[in-house]
Every structure is written in C-alpha cells, then in structure tokens.
Design a protein around this nucleic acid. Structure first.
Lengths: 190, 190
DNA sequence: ACCTGAACACCGTTCAAGT
DNA sequence: ACCTGAACACCGTTCAAGT
C-alpha cells in the first residue's frame, strides 16, 4: 500500500534528524515502527532505495517556488533553496548527495538548474558543465558545513575564529561560479 | 614500530584497489595480513585513522612536481594531479574526500591550492573561497567519474552516448571556476 | 497484502591474557 | 612491543511460514 511506504519514510526522517545517518539502520527503524526489520523489505527492495525515498522527501519538504526572472537570480534561488533543504535535517546533505551520486533519485535539483541555465543562452555543453559544477559546489559546501556544525555541537570549546564556513562563504563561492558561467554568455553581472 | 604501520597501509591499498571500499574492513585486512583483527588496533586507534593514513598514501603516491609559473597553470596542474591521484585507486576519490571532510588528514591538496592562489594577488577571503570551491569541484567531479566507471564495468551494456563524464568535462568545469577567480584579480585569461 | 521468526554471513571495538 | 582469543553489541538481507 502506497501510504504505508510513506509512513516508513516519515519515521526514517524522524530517526535521521534525531540520531543521524549512522543510527538510521533497518533494525532501528523496524524497532521504531514496532515491526520486524524484515517487514521493511515489503515496502523497499533494500536500504539504498529507502534512502532514495528519504532524500526525495527532504527535497520535497524544502521545495519553494522560484520567482526570480533573471537566470542568475534563479540559479542563486535554486542553490539557496537546495542548501536550506539539506540543512533542515541532520546529515541531510550527505544523504541527498549520496543518493544523487548513485543515480537513484534526487534529480530535481539537477533538472531545476539545467532549466535555469537554459534560459541564459549557453551552448548545450556549457549548460551541463555549469549544472554539474553548481551541484558539486552546493553538496560539497553543505556537507562541510553540516560536518563542522556537528563537530561544534559535540566537542565544542567554541574557538569562534576557526569556526568554519558561513552563509557569506556560501554566497561568495556561488557568485564566483556564476561569474564563470556568465563569462560564457558574454554577459557580466552588474 | 613505524614500518609495521606502513605495511598495514600498503596492504590496505591492495585490498581497496582489488575489492573496493566496502570490502576494506578491519576483519578482512587482518585476514589478508595473517593477523587477528584486534592486532590492527595496536597500529591505529580505529578504522577512521587507518583510512586517513590510506588517503595520505594515495596522495603521496600520486604527487608530482608542479612546474608552472602562472598561478592559473599551477592551479590546473594541482587539480589535474589530484584527480589523477584519486583515479589511480578504486574508490580513491571517496576515501580521500571522506577523510578530508572529517578533518583527519588529506590537507596537502588544500595547502597546495592555497599556495597557488596566494601568488595571484587575491584578497584573503577570496583565496579561501577559491580553494574550497576548487576542492569541492575536484572531489565531487571525480567521485562522479569513479562511480560511473564502476557502474559501467559492472552492468555495462555500453550506452556510449550516455557514457557520463569525460576528461574534457573536467577541464571545462575547472576553467569555468578559474575564470570566476580571475575576475576577482582583475585579470582575464587570454 | 503484510508481517513474523529464525537464520546467514557479516561488522567495529574492547580487553584480559599470552610471548 | 606485538599479538591472540573470546566476547559485546551490532549490521543488511533472505525466506519459509503465518494471518
């Protein structure tokens, strides 16, 4: 039944956010649902495809309308929304990046970026290079952020100078890539 | 004894390259060395620090002198060398990226890139943003490549159109980021 | 259709004890 | 200094059997 599978995903997200990816095991999730671990294999072929459903749910919950007109603003809006979506759940960036790398889902951000860059007047291969570069940036940067956030909330003496990466850093790196893309359109950002 | 620890790393690299990261377990490695798994804990505090040593060995084996003069050429040389180093061992990109993310080692590429960008006349925070952006790009791109290579050598009907990412794609994305950095120096590449 | 119970073939890590 | 043996507390997955 479709709604039962979705219940499993909802509970998986609870476990993920409360205890982290390392504790999101089939056995743990079964216990949390009051069910034998083997029962989960009725709804999902294996752990990987459960994680794919979890990743897509993280993205769906973080989805917002992108209102901007200029392609640069659309790209920034999409990347910011993606980062916010990932930061909303513990280990969210790692889950979604892994699922995307294995090609089992999480295609929505790629499609959105490709769509935005298609409105920029780029050659087809620049669209694909730009999309991949942006995705690698957002995933890599956000995994870094989330790793440091957890390290801080654990050991945490709070060396506030070496505090790692900030919102500003994210925006700066994004701008840098955007400038590289804009150069290929023959347009410089104001 | 220092040389015994290095023997463990050497054998770990053999197992990694022959069977992949999933099969690089403490138990498997012990068996391969003719030793109980618990014996490994005399040389390494835990699996993570063993993996850190493996990552550093992958980077050390792939290290080449960087001869270029212009900072752009130095960055390209470093990133290309890094990618080549990672591709030389099965799951090399994932191992090194993970170790780097956890901050347990693999600092050499970051230092090299920071050094190259320091010769470009950038503001301090542009050096750090540029370094991080380049690293995320190389790790992300190379993990993608390696994942697709393995998928191809497994299932592999050889849909040569959908064959994924190439050497050229790597160079193009790198150039794009480099252009974004160059804009911050007030220098456009010829 | 959905779940149980039991099993299979594994993990990382610890620790007293041996040499 | 280096290693063994045994244990602890886990994994993902399969599959006959139940309802």
């Amino acid at each position: 039944m479709a709604y039962r599978a979705h219940d499993v995903v909802t509970r998986a997200l609870d476990v993920l956010d409360a205890h982290g990816l390392a504790d999101l095991t089939m056995r743990r999730l079964g216990k949390e649902l009051g069910v034998q671990p083997s029962a989960l294999y009725h709804h999902f072929a294996n752990k990987q495809s459960l994680l794919a459903a979890v990743a897509d749910e993280i993205l769906a919950r973080g989805a917002r309308p992108v209102e901007a007109e200029r392609w640069q603003d659309r790209v920034v809006a999409i990347c910011t929304m993606l980062r916010d979506s990932l930061l909303a759940y513990r280990d969210g960036a790692e889950v979604v990046a892994t699922v995307h790398a294995f090609g089992l889902g999480a295609t929505q951000p790629r499609d959105a970026l490709t769509g935005a860059l298609s409105g920029a007047g780029l050659r087809a291969d620049d669209i694909s290079v730009g999309t991949r570069t942006l995705l690698h940036y957002v995933y890599g940067h956000t995994i870094d952020e989330q790793t440091h956030l957890q390290a801080d909330s654990a050991g945490a003496l709070g060396d506030d100078a070496a505090a790692g990466v900030t919102d500003r850093d994210f925006a700066n790196g994004l701008e840098l890539i955007l400038d590289g893309i804009a150069l290929r359109v023959g347009v410089t950002q104001a």
